[in-house]
């Protein structure tokens, strides 16, 4: 089974999925990420699916679960780089990925996380 590497950049964890995911790899990634968030005290998680050709309900649920777990551990999750064909298919499948933030690409994902962080600080200062 292939494991997806988790990279750390500042207080953001970045996962770039480059392989056709087996269900076990998906579950392993879910665990790895939760551990890494606690270990590093990351504020944000970015999952880059630019290279992913299909997202079925299993992978879709994994994305939603990761977002929910991370939020509980005080980290925001952003899924970036979803292909148009994948997005259209997900809509048809009936999967809305509720609670998952999305961005067009890695750069915009980082900007989104910084923006969320910034507004939280601003709210606290008020």
């Amino acid at each position: 089974m292939d494991r997806v590497p988790v990279l750390k950049l500042g207080d953001i964890l970045i996962v770039s999925i480059q392989i056709d995911l087996q269900d076990q790899s998906v579950l392993a990634l879910q665990e790895d990420l939760a551990n890494k968030v606690v270990e590093t005290g990351a504020r944000g998680v970015i999952i880059d699916i630019t290279a992913v050709e299909i997202v079925d309900s299993f992978i879709g649920r994994m994305l939603a679960t990761i977002a929910a777990i991370s939020r509980m551990l005080d980290a925001e999750t952003v899924v970036v780089g979803m292909r148009p064909a994948v997005a259209i298919t997900l809509v048809e499948l009936g999967l809305s990925l509720g609670g998952v933030r999305t961005a067009l690409n890695l750069e915009k994902g980082v900007a989104l996380l910084n923006h969320i962080d910034g507004s939280e600080i601003a709210t606290a200062a008020r």
Partner: peptide, 17 residues
Amino acid sequence: SLVDQTKVVTAASELAR
């Protein structure tokens, strides 16, 4: 088409699982 390919592969993944 690319979109239809993606739909078929996704359905196949669901049904196989």
